[in-house]
């Protein structure tokens, strides 16, 4: 982990999540997983945060709020997208009100796949995000991220329902 990024302070925003990812994220803070080992603090407000952890898909109603929370974080900052919904919209993809993944609104730094992702995976994602934060503090531009390939695609609508 980059020396400069030993204190990633996290703010967590639930976009449209079913709460599965949120429960797993909170599990990271418990004695079992202890995110504070990596200097992680759950600060609960964007003004103090370096890392924005997003769960759930982005829809018309919450895109604005997500954008606001992101804008209120001081630079440099990174975004961690938890779960399949944040990369594609998950099971909500294709709903009339859903845009899709978080990258439609914000530049995402780390995608953590899973439905929900395991706490170990989340911790790994936050540590990777911290490394990218360190790079940003040094003034480097970290390489662009790829979206998880195995994103869930909605099944075709059965013939008889058409």
């Amino acid at each position: 982990m980059a020396k400069l990024a030993r204190s990633p302070w996290v703010v967590h925003y639930n976009c449209n999540s079913c709460n599965g990812c949120d429960i797993e994220f909170l599990a990271c803070l418990t004695p079992m997983y202890d995110a504070e080992r990596f200097g992680v603090l759950h600060v609960g407000n964007p003004k103090h945060a370096d890392v924005l952890v997003v769960t759930g898909s982005v829809n018309h109603r919450n895109a604005r709020v997500l954008r606001n929370v992101y804008d209120q974080m001081p630079d440099p900052k990174v975004v961690v997208a938890l779960g399949v919904c944040t990369s594609s919209g998950g099971i909500f993809a294709g709903c009339y009100n859903v845009f899709g993944g978080v990258e439609k609104v914000l530049p995402v730094d780390v995608f953590v796949p899973g439905c929900p992702p395991r706490p170990e995976a989340i911790l790994d994602g936050i540590v990777k995000a911290a490394a990218r934060l360190g790079a940003k503090i040094r003034g480097e531009t970290p390489p662009p991220v790829e979206k998880p390939k195995a994103a869930f695609q909605p099944a075709a609508v059965p013939e008889e329902k058409k």
């Binding site: 990024a5 030993r6 302070w9 004695p31 202890d34 080992r37 001081p74 440099p76």
Partner: peptide, 28 residues
Amino acid sequence: TARIQGRVGPPLLQPFYDIVKLLGKAPI
């Protein structure tokens, strides 16, 4: 505090890291 709660906790120098990081951030 972490030990009392059954956790490992951050390194001893964590407050320094925090402050160095905060000083490096853009002012808003």
